[in-house]
């Protein structure tokens, strides 16, 4: 009987273990092994930190790495600032039909692929695009303006792509805040600002943390949006990894880059949790 139960448990856990093992642990171990070897001849390798040294000594790599991190943090911050009032409105102000349709409206862009969504922005922002023509029609500018291929366009695209992942956890946590707690705040003399600061934000903290973590990771690992909307100066770190693996066929350096990205995102996620005073368990529930 006990042995049977044990077998049952193992069978139940199997899919999880397989998924963890085959898709996460094994590839990462393999990637790590690839990243610490150096090609010294045809088909001959030796263990060395050379790839990591290359990463740290080549300014382009390091600068792109830092830029990507900072831009992702900026994207996360902007998404939070826009998403918070939206989520508050959906969770606490809108009622009934309006509430569900607003929520649906946040979902709508995700019915099409990211590629199409990003292309939508290109139609709006390019030289012959809608915004440019509109500004000319208004007489605000003389000739066509190019709004694509710069950092602003790229961040707009990233924020747009990430918005849902910020709004959903925020709405969920804010919905769990009892209306009467907010009313009690007003009743005791609280102003809008103090209620936001002392009641709403502390309550929404787990949602803020989990939304920010997801948005940050999505931005950091995004490839499509920076490639399509970003200019030649807004190189994204994933583009470097892509070029090492696919263009240069330098798997060793690509793997080292991949590992650096993993370390970076781990550190920043950890820092975010520290700043917001959350634990990983709390944000994931």
């Amino acid at each position: 009987m006990r042995a049977g139960a044990k077998l049952g448990l193992i069978l139940l856990l199997m899919p999880l273990l397989l998924w963890l093992g085959l898709l996460i642990i094994v590839p990462h171990i393999d990637m790590f092994l690839v990243s610490i070897r150096e090609r010294i001849g045809v088909g001959r390798y030796q263990i060395s930190p050379a790839n990591y040294l290359t990463f740290f000594t080549e300014p382009l790599y390091l600068v792109t790495f830092m830029r990507t991190a900072l831009m992702s943090i900026l994207t996360t911050a902007i998404t939070l600032v826009i998403g918070f009032p939206v989520a508050f409105y959906i969770a606490k102000v809108a009622k009934g039909r309006l509430q569900s349709s607003l929520f649906l409206l946040c979902l709508v862009p995700f019915w099409v692929s990211e590629l199409v969504r990003t292309f939508g922005w290109m139609i709006l922002l390019r030289e012959t695009g809608i915004f440019s023509s509109f500004l000319q029609w208004l007489g605000l500018v003389d000739g066509p303006v190019e709004m694509l291929y710069n950092d602003v366009a790229m961040i707009v695209g990233l924020v747009y792509t990430s918005m849902l992942f910020m709004v959903v956890p925020l709405v969920t946590t804010m919905e769990s805040l009892d209306d009467s707690v907010i009313e009690a705040g007003y009743d005791l003399g609280g102003s809008n600002l103090s209620i936001l600061r002392e009641i709403v934000i502390p309550h929404a903290m787990p949602g803020i943390a989990s939304g920010s973590i997801v948005v940050f990771m999505l931005s950091l690992g995004n490839y499509l949006t920076p490639t399509m909307l970003g200019g030649k100066d807004s190189l994204w770190f994933t583009e470097l990894i892509y070029s090492q693996f696919i263009v240069r066929f330098n798997w060793e350096l690509g793997a080292a880059f991949g590992f650096m990205l993993l370390i970076l995102s781990s550190i920043i996620v950890w820092a975010m949790l520290k700043v917001t005073g959350q634990t990983l368990e709390k944000t994931m529930t």
């Binding site: 009892d178 009467s180 707690v181 009313e183 009690a184 705040g185 007003y186 009743d187 005791l188 003399g189 609280g190 102003s191 002392e198 009641i199 502390p202 309550h203």
Partner: peptide, 18 residues
């Protein structure tokens, strides 16, 4: 409401859990 000289004890108390 935040300026009225009345205060209210809510049905479910509404203490601030944070």
């Amino acid at each position: 409401p935040n300026k009225r000289p009345v205060n209210m004890v809510f049905q479910h108390l509404a203490l601030f859990p944070m």
